[in-house]
Write a protein that binds this DNA or RNA. Structure first.
Length: 217
DNA sequence: CAGTCGCA
DNA sequence: TGTG
């Protein structure tokens, strides 16, 4: 990886807001697809219902999760891993909608990561009070590929830290339609979501939906 | 044995 | 709220 997003980005992506080398917020990037994205989320949740996973330490996560794509992220007493089927039903995860794939690819390319081919999409549902404490996405085998994260519904404060837990994270407000991409030198950055403030979104109601695209292998 | 997507 |  020899590129630097601080140098390579802003000209062709006017709404790009660099967070760190290898990390950028694309403001409103997903907005034109808001309705079809939310429709697809409903459809996925009808096949693989939202559920609260248990951490290896035995704690119930406040975020409700489901997945689509070839593989889905799961957590239980045995640890974190990617599974080809929903452990609740034994059925394969719902297919990744074509629109999800093209949006994730376009966002990655805009951020300087060409040819992103995610094989997993984790869907997170936040309601007021829900949080996700600082963590790294390190269960993927292919760390060359970036993470692409799409925000829908209520706004949230995104915590974006460094490669060590001790570095104080930036606090960035993410609104409906914003997309964050991080990879390269930022691929293993610690990140999280502060407790969600109450509110009411015209399309999503009292919820924030986050789509996180990953290439796991 | 390392790490801890949560907690004290 | 930062750190183990």
């Amino acid at each position: 990886m020899t590129f630097d997003l601080f140098d390579s980005l802003p000209q062709d992506a006017p709404h790009a807001e660099p967070l760190a080398p290898g990390a950028v917020v694309l403001r409103g990037f997903a907005r034109e697809h808001e309705q079809s994205l939310l429709d697809a989320v409903r459809d996925i949740a009808a096949q693989a219902p939202w559920r609260h996973l248990i951490t290896p330490g035995g704690q119930r996560m406040s975020v409700a999760m489901t997945n689509c794509g070839q593989l889905g992220w799961v957590s239980d007493a045995r640890g974190y891993r990617y599974e080809p089927a929903d452990p609740e039903s034994g059925k394969p995860w719902p297919a990744m909608p074509a629109g999800f794939l093209s949006l994730a690819r376009a966002a990655a390319a805009t951020a300087g990561f060409e040819d992103f081919r995610p094989d997993a999409c984790l869907l997170n549902r936040y309601t007021p009070g829900t949080r996700l404490s600082l963590h790294q996405d390190r269960d993927e085998l292919d760390l060359r590929a970036p993470i692409v994260s799409v925000s829908l519904g209520l706004p949230a404060v995104f915590l974006f830290g460094g490669l060590s837990r001790a570095e104080r994270p930036l606090r960035v407000r993410l609104a409906h339609g914003d997309v964050v991409v991080w990879g390269g030198p930022a691929r293993l950055a610690f990140h999280g979501i502060a407790p969600l403030a109450d509110g009411d979104h015209a399309l999503a109601g009292r919820e924030r939906i986050n789509l996180t695209f990953r290439k796991t292998r």
